[in-house]
Design a protein around this nucleic acid. Structure first.
Lengths: 131, 131
DNA sequence: CCGCATCCTTTTTGATACTG
DNA sequence: CAGTATCAAAAAGGATGCGG
């Protein structure tokens, strides 16, 4: 089941994308969601609002440049809300929009699964390396 | 809630990873799962066994090089099983392992969500471009 | 000081051509 | 059919510096 052709339901704005199609916008959304740091950012923001420096500190290995890039991308897609406090020193806070929160929930399931099953993967990697 | 420190449960092989740590293996697993084409491959194989050419044809925009590369990576992590039929012409079939099937289920939830909500993202992108 | 833009290096990806 | 090898382009990543 699960047809490949677009449903072509007319006169309704809410059309479902086909992620297997190269030029479908849903593909670009998937790319953004799965872009290296973005999934980690989404899951971390599920905890609540965080400052730039907090994210930079807690997400191991991310550079400030990449963090800024990723946050902008997530903001442009409407997943993350960026609030600048013009204090001194400056403070920028990031949080999830309702849409982003919904998405992040699903991403978290994935990251949680990986954390749970990472040892299985490691065992397999080791076994096939030996062979 | 959801502590940051590792649980340090001892003397059990099944240790849970911390995906926020740069050198945790779970990070590399996440990278593989979210690598551009891998998520699409996983979801497609959820339908059942597929040949190389079927995957290449149905996943729009993927090159043979990347498809082969991605399939090898998924195979190395124990998510995908590769079976070569020494017929003429040759035939290679790919399917999910139990572990891969479990993972792919969660990835599919994500891709399905994106397909459902892509119009919301597009609306947001359009609105912020206008501003 | 914090956030992030700019320069330059390294890694990933893609187009094309060629083998078993 | 199912890949691999090679080269060129693009993107990711790191170091540094500057505005607020």
């Amino acid at each position: 089941m699960n047809g490949t052709q677009a449903p072509a339901r007319r006169s309704r704005k809410k059309q479902k994308g086909n992620i297997y199609t190269a030029d479908c916008p849903s593909r670009s959304v998937l790319d953004h969601v799965t872009s290296r740091w973005n999934s980690l950012i989404l899951v971390m923001l599920l905890e609540g609002t965080h400052r730039f420096s907090e994210l930079a500190h807690r997400i191991g290995g991310v550079s400030e440049r990449m963090l800024a890039h990723s946050l902008h991308a997530l903001e442009a897609d409407g997943f993350v809300l960026r609030v600048v406090h013009p204090t001194k020193p400056p403070k920028v806070e990031y949080s999830l929009t309702p849409l982003g929160s919904d998405l992040a929930t699903h991403v978290q399931v994935l990251t949680a699964w990986i954390e749970e099953n990472v040892s299985r993967v490691l065992d397999y990697r080791k076994a096939s390396a030996k062979k």
